[in-house]
């Protein structure tokens, strides 16, 4: 018997003995061994699915677009992310220009995206496009260490996102639409450009948005980014920028 069949056989064998139901304490049924195990509810026919049961009790995500926006801004602030709301793409361009100048960025990495491309115009530093299509700037298209180095050497990564989650202050990025896996985590600053329409209330709504956009074929990586990278490993003291970005800048356009 191969390992797969052996493990599955063990699991099936174990499950032939019924156990307590989902909200039943084993302590209640056990006693000193005399009480028989009560029959469990039929498997697969639970009264409610977990998410539906939890939806009303989880942290609020906001009922209206205004509520969601203010909740998102509030959460991002608490997470020590920087949040900018600008009216137009030109304003976003100016903002990025001043950020790049102020921090003396030498090189920023980006990917093809309808919001990212226009705001990069006029940025006072070199740019490095991350792309799967073969081309002069397709630095990450191969596995060569030198190409990864090129991204590692960038001062910032500029990406779009799949959704913004008001409930948690999270930014959902994917490998298919946000420049792959490394762009949003390797450079020391991550700049996200998004529109207010991308704000969803809860994590569950973000999953819905994903299904709507990608159907069954989800990108190979989906990541909820919630604030700049952090650690508390040394004496439980919070330090930002452990391995991922030290700064997360969210620019909402429109």
């Amino acid at each position: 018997m191969n390992a797969r069949d052996a493990i599955l056989a063990r699991v099936r064998e174990a499950l032939t003995v019924p156990g307590p139901g989902p909200h039943q304490r084993a302590g209640e049924m056990a006693g000193h061994g005399a009480a028989p195990h009560p029959a469990p509810p039929p498997l697969g026919s639970l009264p409610v699915l977990a998410l539906e049961a939890a939806r009303p009790w989880l942290p609020d995500g906001g009922a209206t677009p205004e509520e969601r926006l203010s909740l998102l801004a509030d959460n991002l602030g608490k997470l020590k992310a920087v949040f900018h709301c600008v009216p137009t793409i030109h304003a976003a361009q100016d903002l990025l220009f001043s950020i790049a100048r102020e921090r003396d960025w030498k090189r920023v990495a980006w990917h093809a995206h309808p919001l990212v491309e226009p705001i990069l115009a006029g940025i006072p530093c070199a740019t490095h496009k991350v792309d799967s299509a073969a081309g002069v700037v397709a630095d990450l298209a191969t596995d060569a260490g030198a190409r990864k180095d090129a991204l590692e050497a960038c001062d910032a990564g500029i990406t779009g996102c799949e959704a913004l989650v008001a409930q948690t202050g999270s930014i959902l990025v994917s490998s298919a639409t946000c420049g792959g896996r490394a762009l949003s985590v390797l450079p020391p600053v991550h700049v996200v450009v998004a529109t207010p329409e991308q704000i969803v209330a809860t994590l569950a709504d973000a999953f819905d948005a994903l299904r709507e956009r990608h159907g069954k074929s989800l990108p190979s990586m989906l990541s909820f980014i919630t604030g700049p990278s952090r650690t508390g490993d040394i004496e439980r003291i919070l330090v930002l920028g452990a391995h991922g970005p030290k700064e997360l800048i969210v620019i909402l356009v429109g």
């Binding site: 762009l183 990586m221 990541s223 919630t226």
Partner: peptide
């Protein structure tokens, strides 16, 4: 929620750059 919650469905897919 922790800072990164990431789902991986497999190796790089066609059209993904890394």
């Amino acid at each position: 929620i922790t800072c990164y919650n990431t789902l991986y469905g497999g190796p790089r897919a066609t059209g993904e750059c890394d």
